[in-house]
């Protein structure tokens, strides 16, 4: 049974694209077939984070408009063969995302993949609505920060009212993913804690991703953090989150960096 998952947040810059790449790669490494779909028409970035920016020939809009078929537009990951990417168009405007077109593409992708992961653009406009409309489940990416929590609440409201599931009277499965979490600051009381955010948003917790330099390093080299630095704290947190998505019952913990002997002896230099 294939699942359509939307990664959304309302607010920009909280880590939707990073999360899409990391969760998708983690699921694919686990043997699932996964496609990542970028819905950020005009400002695509998933291709860059995945390191596929040089290989884009066709995009989602080309498929919707019939200029290319799905197989031609899908870009296979070179590191994990069961992982594919459907890029967004960089040039055309988002009115080209027609409801029927998107429905058809998602439907076709469902037949080919175990997981269809839709990377939503920021905001609550058409692109974001199209990304969430066909979803079976949603990952709401939230930073422990007031504006992010507020926007997440708004998005949760939209997931419960404007999606296909909502219109059919069904419940959308929603998961909270806390990113850029700093346990020290939270314990000092200078950052919203997990309990605070969970209490306010009251949806189940999928995972807590600690703030980590490995995430930036991974996007620099164009690889999901779960591929580039699989042993890092952030990658382990994403891997656990992916296992929970797939139905495993795992206790939510915040992984910490494992310092190797070498790292410990020579503290990493900041250039």
């Amino acid at each position: 049974m294939s699942k359509v998952l939307v990664v959304t947040s309302g607010k920009g810059g909280v880590g939707k694209t990073t999360t899409t790449a990391a969760l998708g790669a983690a699921l694919a490494k686990n043997g699932q077939t996964v496609v990542l779909v970028d819905f950020d028409v005009g400002l695509r970035n998933l291709d860059l984070v995945m390191g596929a920016e040089r290989r884009v020939v066709f995009d989602l809009i080309n498929v919707i408009q019939g200029d290319a078929n799905l197989a031609q537009a899908l870009i296979k990951d070179k590191r994990v063969p069961s992982l594919s990417l459907l890029p967004a168009s960089q040039t055309r405007d988002k009115d080209a995302l027609t409801s029927e077109g998107v429905a058809k593409v998602i439907d076709d992708l469902r037949k080919k993949f175990d997981w269809v992961i839709c990377d939503s653009p920021a905001g609550i406009e058409r692109g974001a609505q199209m990304a969430m409309y066909h979803a079976d489940m949603a990952v709401i990416v939230t930073n422990p920060e007031v504006s992010s929590v507020r926007d997440s609440d708004r998005i949760i409201g939209m997931l419960d009212s404007t999606t296909e599931k909502a219109k059919n009277g069904e419940k959308m499965e929603k998961h909270l993913l806390l990113t850029r979490y700093d346990p020290q600051r939270a314990s000092r009381g200078d950052m919203l804690g997990t309990d605070d955010v969970l209490e306010i948003l009251s949806i189940p917790l999928l995972g807590i991703i600690p703030e980590s330099g490995d995430v930036l390093r991974a996007s620099n080299v164009g690889a999901p953090v779960t591929i580039a630095e699989p042993e890092s704290a952030a990658a382990r947190a994403y891997t656990d989150a992916a296992r929970r998505l797939a139905g495993e019952k795992l206790e939510v913990t915040i992984p910490t960096e494992r310092k190797g002997l070498f790292d410990w002896l020579f503290k990493r230099r900041v250039s």
């Binding site: 920016e53 040089r54 290989r55 020939v57 078929n69 031609q72």
Partner: peptide, 15 residues
């Protein structure tokens, strides 16, 4: 159309 495959690789000096 289904029998056409297109691959692209853009490089700095050679594509």
């Amino acid at each position: 159309q289904d029998k056409v495959q297109i691959k692209l690789d853009r490089g700095a000096h050679c594509s």
